[in-house]
Amino acid sequence: MSPPHVVRMELDTFSVVDRPALATWFGDVFTDLLAPLCPASVSELVAVARGYQPSDTTPWGPPGYARLLLSSGDFTLQSWSAALSDLPSFLRVQLVQLDSQGLPLVDGGWCAEILLKDDPSFPHQIVVTAARSLFGGWISHVVQQKWLAAFRSGATLARACGGWITLDRVGVRTAHEVAAGVGLDESLFTAAEVARGPHWATLLGPRQVAALGGVQQVCASAPCHAVEDLGGGRILLQLTEHLDDVPPDALNELVKFLRPVLH
């Protein structure tokens, strides 16, 4: 439903997450990042839906996945806490434009969503996406800083082993993973040791930082606009000042720097 070009923020973590704190963080992300983008009243958005069963006419997602869609009337810390408790393995909150029959509007529609996937066989994945068209063609510096702030707090809260923010045309795999022929399963199983690619904002986890020479070495030598020590061995690299201005030369320099921890 979303155009192929989206702003995508993803955090991967093998750690046990504080669920009440995570619920608060999700609420802040929704309120600060996604709700202001939606060019419609929240009463027009999808209402609560449980017990999803996919079909040819309502292809909401893969078989076996539960899907929880929240509207503002149910969007409270209590509802989030209950949702995280009731659906520990999969949670998706999606804002989507509907047509006159209450179905998702595909052509010319808009979509933004928050996804939590907590599979015991894989790390947690926390993904926040918004169609770039929702930003009116220009993602302001103020908006970019809000996404970075949410990324920092989420990385610390979840004790993330890696993550990134980018303008993504690929989907669940990063552009680097597609180019390198790396499957999603392999990426997730090695997420703690191997970065999932160079991005506008790249979060390096403790093992990746250690492989690159340690915190001081990375902070002193990373070829980025900004380098931030988040504590706990985690470092956030911001490649350029603006999300939609990433010259190929800058990206190539980051690739060279990250090569020891890339597939």
Rank of each mutant, 00 (worst) to 15 (best):
residue 149 A to Y: 01
residue 149 A to G: 00
residue 149 A to C: 04
residue 149 A to T: 11
residue 149 A to S: 11
residue 150 A to G: 07
residue 150 A to D: 07
residue 150 A to P: 07
residue 150 A to E: 07
residue 151 F to N: 02
residue 151 F to W: 05
residue 151 F to R: 02
residue 151 F to I: 06
residue 151 F to Q: 04
residue 151 F to T: 03
residue 152 R to W: 05
residue 152 R to C: 14
residue 152 R to Y: 02
residue 152 R to A: 11
residue 153 S to N: 12
residue 153 S to A: 14
residue 153 S to G: 03
residue 153 S to W: 05
residue 153 S to Y: 07
residue 153 S to D: 14
residue 154 G to I: 04
residue 154 G to V: 06
residue 155 A to D: 02
residue 155 A to V: 04
residue 155 A to Y: 04
residue 155 A to Q: 04
residue 155 A to L: 06
residue 156 T to P: 02
residue 156 T to F: 00
residue 156 T to S: 13
residue 156 T to K: 15
residue 156 T to C: 13
residue 157 L to D: 01
residue 157 L to P: 01
residue 157 L to N: 01
residue 157 L to M: 05
residue 158 A to S: 15
residue 158 A to V: 12
residue 158 A to W: 01
residue 159 R to A: 12
residue 159 R to F: 05
residue 159 R to N: 11
residue 159 R to C: 07
residue 160 A to N: 01
residue 160 A to Y: 00
residue 160 A to D: 05
residue 160 A to F: 00
residue 160 A to L: 00
residue 160 A to S: 12
residue 160 A to V: 08
residue 161 C to I: 05
residue 161 C to F: 00
residue 161 C to T: 15
residue 161 C to P: 03
residue 161 C to Q: 11
residue 162 G to N: 09
residue 162 G to D: 08
residue 162 G to L: 09
residue 163 G to C: 08
residue 163 G to R: 00
residue 163 G to F: 08
residue 163 G to K: 02
residue 163 G to V: 10
residue 164 W to Q: 10
residue 164 W to L: 13
residue 164 W to Y: 14
residue 164 W to F: 14
residue 165 I to F: 02
residue 165 I to D: 02
residue 165 I to C: 03
residue 165 I to A: 01
residue 165 I to N: 03
residue 166 T to L: 09
residue 166 T to E: 15
residue 166 T to Q: 13
residue 166 T to V: 12
residue 166 T to F: 06
residue 167 L to W: 00
residue 167 L to A: 08
residue 167 L to F: 02
residue 167 L to E: 12
residue 168 D to A: 09
residue 168 D to H: 11
residue 168 D to W: 10
residue 168 D to S: 14
residue 169 R to M: 12
residue 169 R to V: 09
residue 169 R to W: 13
residue 169 R to P: 03
residue 170 V to P: 01
residue 170 V to C: 13
residue 170 V to Y: 09
residue 171 G to H: 12
residue 171 G to N: 11
residue 171 G to E: 09
residue 171 G to D: 09
residue 171 G to R: 12
residue 172 V to L: 09
residue 172 V to N: 07
residue 172 V to H: 11
residue 172 V to A: 08
residue 172 V to F: 11
residue 172 V to W: 10
residue 173 R to K: 13
residue 173 R to G: 02
residue 173 R to M: 09
residue 173 R to F: 04
residue 173 R to T: 15
residue 173 R to L: 13
residue 174 T to I: 04
residue 175 A to G: 08
residue 175 A to Q: 10
residue 175 A to S: 10
residue 175 A to E: 10
residue 176 H to D: 13
residue 176 H to V: 03
residue 176 H to W: 15
residue 176 H to T: 04
residue 176 H to I: 04
residue 177 E to H: 03
residue 177 E to V: 01
residue 177 E to T: 04
residue 177 E to N: 07
residue 177 E to A: 13
residue 178 V to Q: 15
residue 178 V to C: 10
residue 178 V to D: 11
residue 178 V to R: 15
residue 178 V to F: 06
residue 178 V to P: 03
residue 178 V to S: 12
residue 178 V to T: 15
residue 179 A to M: 12
residue 179 A to P: 03
residue 180 A to P: 01
residue 180 A to V: 05
residue 180 A to L: 00
residue 181 G to C: 09
residue 181 G to H: 09
residue 181 G to M: 10
residue 181 G to E: 10
residue 181 G to D: 11
residue 182 V to K: 01
residue 182 V to H: 03
residue 182 V to S: 03
residue 182 V to L: 06
residue 183 G to N: 06
residue 183 G to F: 11
residue 183 G to T: 07
residue 184 L to M: 07
residue 184 L to S: 05
residue 184 L to D: 03
residue 185 D to P: 02
